[in-house]
Amino acid sequence: MFNMLNLIRNEHMKLFKQFSTWVMVGLLVLVLLIVGIATKYLADSQTSENWKMQLQAENQQLTEQKEQVPDIGKSHDVLEERIAINQYRIDHDIPPIENKTLWGFMNSATNLTSLVTLFTIVIAAGIVAGEFSWGTIKLLLIRPVSRSKILLSKFMTTLLFALYNLFILFISSFIFGAIFFGFEGKELPYLAFVDGEVVERNMITHILTLYGLNSVDLIMMVTFAFMISTVFRNRSLAVGLSIFLMFTGQQVVMLLSEYEWVKYILFANTNLSQYMNGQPLVEGMTMTFSITVLLVYFILFVTMSWTIFQRRDVAN
């Protein structure tokens, strides 16, 4: 155990002594800052003083839509949910969360987790392949430490890097949000629709849930990049392939969504929020199903990485 801790310390030292790592962390904060400034000075306010009237108008529209559209899958449920939440806002005098508020900003900042995914893919792609391209793998592996432990320390360091970045994103979105938009409306809750009823939830809990849901995609793509990096010892291939799949995976799944088997594709399952609001991609998919599929892929990626890394002849 002590041994493992030392290995992780080593990987951290190697990671954070590289300038490029800090560039990525800096870039994340910079992008967030730019989004903050843009929101404050460029974006229009979506809601005004008479938000109640707007919501009422929206509800009317939604009700009409509900009558026109046939009830396929859960399409009516989605509409009903929005109507119920809007009505709840009007009844309880809870205005919608505006973009130009602390909560609004922190909510939209959760979209930047895809940037964290991107950066972590780059780290995952380099953390094993780098040792091979630097030639340092030879001196690394002639120590009284098993190869599987070395690989584990690298994998854990990669995931920790993602965690640090998510933490930085969360904290700096709070700081920037507070600086740009103040604390107005901080008492407003998040409204969730559970079992046909609207419930008030703590906003921070909701934002953290969003981070959690986005992390599913992050972990899967990073594990994939890690596997490619280990199997092919090629950083560019690992980065390229992972990012390509990250951007096209969802679209391909959408295109193929009429087929039943599409539900076994990884990307049909990475978005767990499909079960919380809205309908799943393929009829009959459940949260348990998706989690099972995700676990199978995860175990597959990890087994591939470990088996190949342990058996590989280091001869370059």
Partner: peptide, 13 residues
Amino acid sequence: GGIIENPEMYKFM
């Protein structure tokens, strides 16, 4: 203890 081929080290450290 050993050096295998060239003593390749982490250059950025």
